[in-house]
Design a protein around this nucleic acid. Structure first.
Length: 759
RNA sequence: GGCCGCUUAGCUCAGUUGGUUAGAGCGUCCGGUUUACAUCCGGCAGGUCGGGGGUUCGACUCCCUCAGCGGCCACCA
C-alpha cells in the first residue's frame, strides 16, 4: 500500500468493481420495501457542473438504503432540453452563416439529433467519475420511444378530459428565437426607456410603446378619476399619424390614476394588461407586429388607397410597413413631431421589461393560437397532496412557495415553435381547414408561405408541402385529430413541439414505464426527489401534477431541495464573473471523495454551500487519514496480531471507544433518516479522526495484549468505513478491498455490506 | 407591491422542539523529526451570536421592530 491515498489509482477500478458485481442494480429478491430515486436528467449534450455534483445527496441516500438491505435503485437519464439545445445548435449554425429557416423540419431535427449524439455521453462518464451508483441498465433519454409513447398517452387523456384547449391568447413571444415562452421562462429586467407623452384627442397619454398606437381600440381611465369621469362612455375623436380614428373611453379599476396622465390607450393585441382589459370589455384584438418583430400595416394598406385616403397617410403606412419595432420608433417620432402631437419625452423613466431568458431579446407580447393546459384541475390535487402530507418538503418552507405558485392556476402554454422536442401529436385536414397557413421549402428550396388551399390550387402538391414543411399555423378554432400516426393523405402535422417541461414533468412515469412496466409496479411512487429549488415550479410541481393525474398517486414522497453551490465567497458561479469551479478539475486534484463530502459537510438544504479548494483539500486529507489508519491496522496484522473474541469485560479505554462507536452508529442512522447529511458527515469526521485515530489509536500504540486492542480498533474502524461509505465510497471501498484480501473483513464488497445496526 | 431566507470566531459555515463554560473546518500564533499519515501530532488565541425592545427562572433559539444582503412571485400602460 502506498503511504498516501492517491485517488486516481483507485477510483476507476473501484467503480469497475461495483459494476462487475452488478451492485448498482436493485436486489429484487428482498422482501423489504423498495427505495428509489430518479436522477434529475441533465441535458444530454451538457458537461458536468458543480450543481450536478450536488446529486451526491442522492448517492448517499441510495448507498445507505442499499446497505440497509432495501431493494434500491437510482435511475439515470438525460434530457433533450428542447429549446436549450436548439439554441446552442442554432448558434453553431449561425457561425457557419446559416439559419434554421434554410431547413425543413425533418432535416433540422435530424441535424440537431446528430449534434446531440455527438456531444452526449460525456456527462454520463462524468457522473461515474463522481462515484454515483446509478443503475445504467435503466437509463432513459427524453426522446426514447417509450417516453414519446407515454407523453402522447398523457396528452390524449388531457384532450379527452377537456384539459387541453387551443386559444388565441397573449403569449410571450421572442422574435429572435421565434417561439412562445411560458411566463416562468421570461426574465424581467429594470431598464430606462423614453416615456412618450402624446396628444390623444382631448387627452394626453403616456406610453413606452408608441408603435402600437395604430391598433388602439379604446381609452381607459379609473372610474373615480375626476379628470376623466365626464368622458367615460363617450366616444372621442383622435387624430393619429394615419388620420382620425374614434374610440370609447372605458372605466376600469385597474388603471392607476397616478401613472402618466391617468388615462391609457388600450391595445389588446400587444400588451397582457390591455389584453385582459379587452376581454373584460369585449374589445377587438387587432395586431400590428408580426412574429419576426416587424411592423405589419397590411390591414391598413389593404383597405386604404388614393381614392379614400390622404397621400400623406398612405405614404406613412408604406414607409412604416415591415420596419422593426426599433426603427419604427425613430420613424414615427419624426412624424409625431411634424404633426405636433408629441408633447414631451421623459428620458428618465425606469420600468421593468420582459426579456427572453435565453436570448435576452425583448419579449413581444403577441396574440397567437397556442395549445394550453388547464391548470386548475391539475393543481388542486397537487396542493391537496402536500396539505395532506403525501408529499413533504425539506426544508419545509418551500411548501409555501409551492402553494403560492400553484394556486394561481395560470394555464400553461405548452406549445413551442421549435423542432427539437416531442411534436404535438395533432393533425389538420387541409380539406376541413383550408385556411391553414404553411411555411415550407419547395422543390427549388425556396421558402414559400401561404394558405394551404391557395397553394394547392396553384402548383404545389401535398407531397411537396409535407416534405419541405417548416411551420404550420392553424387558427385557434381549427379542426384537428389527435393521433400518433398520420390519419390520412389530406392531413398535415402540427409543427409545434411540447415545452420541455411537459415531457420532463412526466419523468417518473417515463423512466419507470407507466402503466405496465415492472419498475413502475415496484418503484412507483419513488422515495425521494432531490433537486435544486430553482426548478421547483418548472419541474417538481409538474411531476406532482402529472403523477397524480395519471396514476392517482404522488410520484415521490419527499422533496429534498439541496444547496446551490457557490464559489468560496458565497457568490453564485457564473461565466461572466469567471468564478466557475469545474468539479472534474477538483476531482483530478483532490479526488471524488473529497469533493463529495465537502459538498455535504457544513451545508443545509435550501441554503447555498460555498465550495473552496481549501475545504476540499481538508477532506482529501481526511481520506488519506482513513487510508493510513487502514495501513496501520494492516501492518499490525502482517506482524502477526490476530482478531480475537473480545471478552465481556473490557478495559476502560476499549469500552469507551466501543461505546462511542455505538452512539455514532445510532447518530448517523438517525441523521440520515432526517436528511441531516451535514450532521452525519461532521460527526463521522470527528469520530474517526479525533476519537478513533488521535485518541484511541495513539494511546493504545504501546499496548501489548492478547489482541483486545487490535480487535477493538478493527471493529471500530471497519464499522466507521461502513458509515462513511455513502459519503466517501472510493477510499472506503479501497481500504475494504485491502482488508478483504487478508480476511480482516468477511463481506467481499463494502458497497453491499450490511449497514451497522445501532444497539 | 406580496412571500421567504440570511446576518454566529479573520474566512466559509453548523447549531433538531429555548436549558449547564456557543461548535467545526480552514487560517493565525506557539511547540513537536524514531517508520500509519508532515495530506501529520500537541497546544494557545479569537465571538457582548447584525442593532434595539419584549416574553421567560433562563433566548443564538420564541415575538415585535430597525438595518444590510439574497431569493421567489407579481408588475409598471
Amino acid at each position: 500500500m502506498d503511504t498516501a491515498f492517491i485517488p486516481k489509482d483507485h477510483e476507476s477500478s473501484m467503480y469497475a468493481l461495483w459494476e462487475q458485481n452488478n451492485a448498482f442494480q436493485p436486489d429484487l429478491k428482498s422482501t423489504k420495501k423498495p427505495f428509489s430515486i430518479l436522477l434529475p436528467p441533465p441535458n444530454a449534450n451538457a458537461s458536468l457542473h458543480a450543481g450536478h455534483a450536488m446529486y451526491v445527496i442522492e448517492d448517499i441516500l441510495v448507498r445507505w438504503k442499499r446497505m440497509q438491505g432495501y431493494p434500491t435503485v437510482w435511475i439515470p437519464g438525460t434530457d433533450h432540453a428542447g429549446y436549450e439545445t436548439q439554441y446552442v445548435y442554432e448558434k453553431q449554425l449561425s457561425k457557419q452563416g446559416k439559419s434554421r429557416f434554410e431547413f425543413d423540419r425533418q432535416t433540422l431535427y435530424d441535424d440537431v439529433a446528430a449534434f446531440v449524439k455527438q456531444n452526449s455521453g460525456l456527462i454520463e462518464e462524468q457522473l461515474k467519475v463522481l462515484g454515483f451508483s446509478l443503475d445504467w441498465s435503466r437509463k432513459t433519454f427524453m426522446l426514447d420511444e417509450k417516453v414519446i409513447r407515454i407523453v402522447y398517452s398523457t396528452f390524449e387523456k388531457l384532450v379527452k378530459d377537456g384539459l387541453v384547449y387551443r386559444d388565441n391568447y397573449i403569449v410571450n413571444f421572442c422574435p429572435k428565437c421565434g417561439t412562445t415562452f411560458a411566463d416562468l421562462e421570461v426574465n424581467h429586467i429594470e431598464r430606462k426607456d423614453p416615456l412618450y407623452y402624446i396628444k390623444y384627442g382631448p387627452f394626453t397619454i403616456a406610453t413606452v410603446r408608441p408603435e402600437t398606437k395604430f391598433r388602439d381600440v379604446a381609452l381607459a381611465a379609473h372610474p373615480k378619476d375626476p379628470r376623466y369621469k365626464k368622458w367615460i362612455g363617450k366616444k372621442v375623436e383622435v387624430l393619429g399619424l394615419l388620420g382620425p380614428v374614434s374610440m370609447t373611453v372605458l372605466a376600469d379599476e385597474g388603471v392607476d390614476p397616478k401613472f402618466g396622465t391617468g388615462i391609457m390607450k388600450v391595445t389588446p393585441a400587444h400588451d397582457p394588461h390591455d389584453f385582459a382589459l379587452g376581454k373584460k370589455h369585449n374589445l377587438p384584438v387587432d395586431s400590428i407586429i408580426d412574429t419576426r418583430g416587424r411592423m405589419d400595416f397590411s390591414w391598413y394598406l389593404n383597405t386604404h388607397n388614393e381614392k379614400n385616403t390622404e397621400v400623406k397617410y398612405l405614404d406613412r403606412a408604406k414607409k412604416y410597413h415591415g420596419k422593426s419595432v426599433k426603427d419604427m420608433r425613430v420613424l414615427m417620432l419624426e412624424d409625431l413631431k411634424q404633426d405636433g402631437i408629441l408633447e414631451k419625452i421623459d428620458e428618465n423613466y425606469t420600468h421593468s421589461v420582459a426579456v427572453c431568458y435565453k436570448s435576452d431579446h425583448d419579449i413581444e407580447p403577441l396574440v397567437l393560437p397556442n395549445w394550453f393546459i388547464r391548470m386548475k384541475p391539475l393543481a388542486e390535487p397537487a396542493m391537496k397532496a402536500a396539505k395532506e402530507g403525501l408529499v413533504t418538503f425539506v426544508p419545509k418552507r418551500f411548501e409555501k412557495q409551492y402553494y403560492q405558485w400553484l394556486e394561481k392556476f395560470i394555464d400553461w402554454p405548452i406549445s413551442r415553435q421549435i423542432v427539437w422536442g416531442i411534436r404535438i401529436p395533432v393533425w389538420y385536414s387541409v380539406k376541413e381547414n383550408p385556411d391553414l397557413e404553411v411555411t415550407f421549402l419547395n422543390a427549388k428550396h425556396e421558402r414559400v408561405i401561404g394558405k394551404v388551399s391557395e397553394l394547392l390550387a396553384q402548383h404545389n402538391t401535398m407531397q411537396e408541402i409535407t416534405d419541405g414543411l417548416q411551420q404550420l399555423r392553424a387558427s385557434a378554432n381549427a379542426k384537428f385529430v389527435v393521433s400518433d400516426k398520420k390519419p390520412g393523405e389530406e392531413y398535415l402535422p402540427e409543427t409545434d413541439t411540447f415545452d420541455t417541461w411537459f415531457s420532463s414533468g412526466q419523468w417518473p412515469l417515463t423512466t419507470l414505464d407507466y402503466p405496465n412496466g415492472k419498475d413502475f409496479k415496484t418503484f412507483y411512487p419513488t422515495s425521494v426527489l432531490d433537486t435544486m429549488w430553482d426548478i421547483l415550479f418548472f419541474w417538481v410541481a409538474r411531476m406532482i401534477m402529472f403523477g397524480l393525474y395519471m396514476t392517482g398517486e404522488v410520484p415521490f414522497k419527499t422533496v429534498y431541495l439541496h444547496s446551490m453551490v457557490t464559489d468560496e465567497k458565497g457568490q453564485k458561479m457564473s461565466k461572466s464573473k469567471g468564478n466557475v469551479i469545474n468539479p472534474i478539475e477538483i476531482v483530478n486534484e483532490f479526488g471524488a471523495d473529497a469533493l463529495r463530502i465537502s459538498l455535504v459537510a457544513g451545508s443545509t438544504p435550501g441554503n447555498p454551500i460555498a465550495l473552496s479548494k481549501e475545504k476540499v483539500k481538508g477532506y482529501r486529507n481526511f481520506g488519506n487519514k482513513l487510508w493510513n489508519i487502514g495501513r496501520y491496522i494492516l501492518l499490525q496484522h502482517e506482524a502477526g496480531t490476530k482478531i480475537i473474541a473480545l471478552p465481556k469485560k473490557l478495559d476502560k479505554e476499549h469500552a469507551t471507544i466501543l461505546k462511542s462507536l455505538s452512539s455514532t452508529v445510532k447518530y448517523i442512522t438517525s441523521a440520515l433518516e432526517k436528511y441531516r447529511f451535514s450532521d452525519a458527515a461532521l460527526r463521522l469526521h470527528g469520530f474517526v479522526w479525533d476519537e478513533c485515530a488521535n485518541t484511541y489509536l495513539e494511546k493504545t500504540k504501546s499496548n501489548t495484549d492478547g489482541g483486545e486492542t487490535f480487535t477493538t480498533l478493527v471493529r471500530v474502524f471497519t464499522t466507521s468505513l461502513k458509515l462513511l461509505h455513502p459519503f466517501m465510497p472510493f477510499v472506503t471501498e479501497s481500504i475494504w478491498q485491502e482488508f478483504s484480501k487478508t480476511h480482516l473483513v468477511d463481506e467481499p464488497l463494502l458497497m453491499t455490506a450490511e449497514w451497522p445496526k445501532s444497539v
